[in-house]
Design a protein around this nucleic acid. Sequence first.
DNA 1: CCTTTAACGCAACTGGAGTCCCGTTATGAG
DNA 2: CTCATAACGGGACTCCAGTTGCGTTAAAGG
Lengths: 208, 208
Amino acid sequence: MSDERPEPGTVRPGGRTAKVREAVLRAAGDALAEDGFDRLDLAEIARRAGVGKTTVYRRWGTVPGLVADLLTEMAEESLPRTETGTLLGDLTAQARLVQSTLSDTRQGPLFKALITAAACDRQTADALHRFYRIRTEEWAPCVTAAIERGEVPEGTDPAEVIRAVSAPLYYRLLIGGDPIDRAAADRAALAAATAARAGAFAVRTANG
Amino acid sequence: MSDERPEPGTVRPGGRTAKVREAVLRAAGDALAEDGFDRLDLAEIARRAGVGKTTVYRRWGTVPGLVADLLTEMAEESLPRTETGTLLGDLTAQARLVQSTLSDTRQGPLFKALITAAACDRQTADALHRFYRIRTEEWAPCVTAAIERGEVPEGTDPAEVIRAVSAPLYYRLLIGGDPIDRAAADRAALAAATAARAGAFAVRTANG
DNA sequence: CCTTTAACGCAACTGGAGTCCCGTTATGAG
DNA sequence: CTCATAACGGGACTCCAGTTGCGTTAAAGG
């Protein structure tokens, strides 16, 4: 009633173990982008990665478990952020980055599959939330700067503005099915910037 | 090389066939809401519906196929729309309706599962797009009315405004994981109304 | 009411995703 | 360098989602 054995791969994370993880996560990303979440077969991923299927089942167990690990990996690599000097400029840059990611032949289906996996499994959902919380925090400073410039009212929630830019694009990816083009990105950025300047994302303090 | 046989259930759609469809779709909705898309078993649905599993496999074949039919059914039942006289009022009513749906114990998981299924299957995705196109068109008149009142610039795309209201709430459901509360709904409606009044959803005509 | 056959239901069957056993490799400590 | 064992790999095995065959029930037409 004591031996909680450590996760495989944590005790001896030397060369081979790390190479296996890298190869499997890479193969998982490829397979997710090509086939989607539901058609995923761990044996197929093992084959792609040049690894025994027993290894994949032992270390990750299930498809959602593997996806969760992939998301943790993805959360660690960071993207450079642009600084244009205006809120609209910064938000447009963000929207276009999201747009080019979601309309990319590999990344679009991959993100769709990641979100799908998260909808099916709690652990994966937590990993996804962490991933987007990090991304949101990376972009938040451009709103903070706008507040300091006086472009946007005090009390505005930066994260809420950032999410407002992305949301319409993800809506298209997952629900509406409409094309995710540059016009859609620019419109999302403009709408978010306009609403932010008007104070739509400010906390409702007692103001007369 | 000729006999394209008709879809089962279309030739003789009398009492029994209709009852079976109703019971199966009902059971499918329950199972989706409770277990989610990936844990779905057609045999389990057959058991719940009090129907032979062969019947379910023969008429719908796969889980996405069944979900697509469920979406078609759901698209036919319509929701009443409120008219408050102002764009913000109408959009707030819409946002709160979406909010109460997505935070409902049954409907929230159900919609998450429906969107997940659509992400995995083309036929289901088409059904989902039709469903939301219909819902969007049902709400669009409140934007059209705002244009006629002069509250919103000419050339504003009504559907785009409606989607802008829903998008942040679906983003929370599927991606961010933040709670879908009334404050979020009201903020989404306020942001969309503000952006719409400022012309953020108007087509970019040649204006100096 | 009688006939035809679409659609259903039961039960046996199948294939492949996921598990288990055990021998092999190579990491990290002394 | 040597040893103990974490981690990997191949292959046999299990179990159940999905298929198939065939007899039964009940729409639809006359």
